[in-house]
């Protein structure tokens, strides 16, 4: 369980995190979404005691992180894939972390094998690719077999096989009853991984909803008929919002496919296509964060 209560962090005159109140519950993967610069990393740093909140509190397992005894055995974190000395070997990096929390050499070997870095464990990390760095960061997060995991952009730089591995790993960890918070700006990744979403923009909370609900909110029905104007009029009378799509089909919101079909039958118009359209997370997310991006690029 991770609890944020009115968490606020101000850097100079820039509000990075603005009055965030969220509970991240165990047993599911919570996706932490937001555009670049929306305060995800700052929030995680506050939770991990690296940054001091300007106002509000952040607690893990009921206490501020800095009061945890041997925190790696309670909370695992991946904050910055570059957070290591390039001259050290992967093994020495992990062993130093393990020893500081009373963990054994055997456990270091275990996590090295788990993330698939056996072959390069005794190489200096300065020569690692971004993907290998991410695996090393995940190994560090898993060292103490923690019940809470915070991972900031864990799939950044991973190849498709690595992305699938992280997704399955996160789902398995959550299924064991752990609290898993994983941030990303890649919606497509979250769609297959997260059960619950916390969406932020400019440091403010935009949504704290189950994945299905966010997707369902913008679900629609697509219907095609040679007598589209007639059908559209009937559907509008029944209370649906109807728009004409570019290919001549109708997009119906606020009505399920069965009722659309019934309406067509009652009106006596033929139906050539009737499909439920589930919005992509990408679209739902863009709708939410449209006005909240920090850096907006124009077209040339």
């Amino acid at each position: 369980m991770i609890e944020l209560d009115g968490l606020t962090k101000v850097f100079g005159d820039r509000v990075a995190v603005d009055d965030l109140t969220v509970r991240v519950r165990p047993g599911r993967v919570t996706g932490f979404l937001g555009p670049n610069g929306s305060g995800k990393t700052t929030t995680m740093r506050c939770v991990l005691g690296l940054a001091r909140p300007t106002a509000g509190t952040a607690t893990v397992l009921g206490v501020p992180y800095r009061r945890l005894w041997r925190p790696l055995t309670r909370v695992g974190a991946l904050v910055d894939p570059r957070a290591r000395h390039p001259g050290r070997t992967a093994y020495a990096h992990l062993l130093a972390l393990a020893r500081s929390n009373g963990l054994s050499r055997a456990r270091v070997t275990e996590v090295v094998d788990l993330v698939g870095l056996e072959a390069v464990a005794h190489d200096r990390v300065g020569g690692f690719s971004l993907g290998m760095g991410q695996r090393l960061g995940i190994a560090a997060a898993l060292l103490g077999d923690p019940e809470v995991l915070l991972l900031d952009e864990p799939v950044n730089g991973l190849d498709p096989e690595g992305i699938r591995w992280v997704r399955e790993l996160l789902r398995a960890l959550a299924a064991e009853g752990r609290t898993v918070l994983v941030s990303s700006h890649l919606m497509s990744e979250m769609e297959d991984t997260a059960d619950h979403l916390v969406v932020v923009g400019r440091g403010r909370l935009l949504a704290d909803v189950p994945m299905a609900e966010l997707l369902g909110a913008s679900a629609a029905v697509r219907v095609r008929s040679p007598q589209a104007p007639l059908l559209a009029a009937a559907l509008r009378r029944a209370g649906a919002a109807v728009t004409l799509e570019l290919d001549g089909a109708l997009r119906v919101e606020g009505m399920d496919p069965a009722r659309v079909g019934d309406a067509a039958f009652a009106t006596g118009v033929p139906v050539h296509e009737l499909t439920r359209v589930v919005a992509s997370l990408e679209a739902a997310y863009l709708e939410l964060t449209g006005g909240e991006v920090e850096f907006r690029a124009g077209l040339p």
Binding site: G49, V79, A83, R84, L97, S100
Partner: peptide
């Protein structure tokens, strides 16, 4: 940046 992992631990 190694201090970040050290201070988390």
């Amino acid at each position: 940046g190694s201090a970040v992992s050290a201070l988390v631990a």
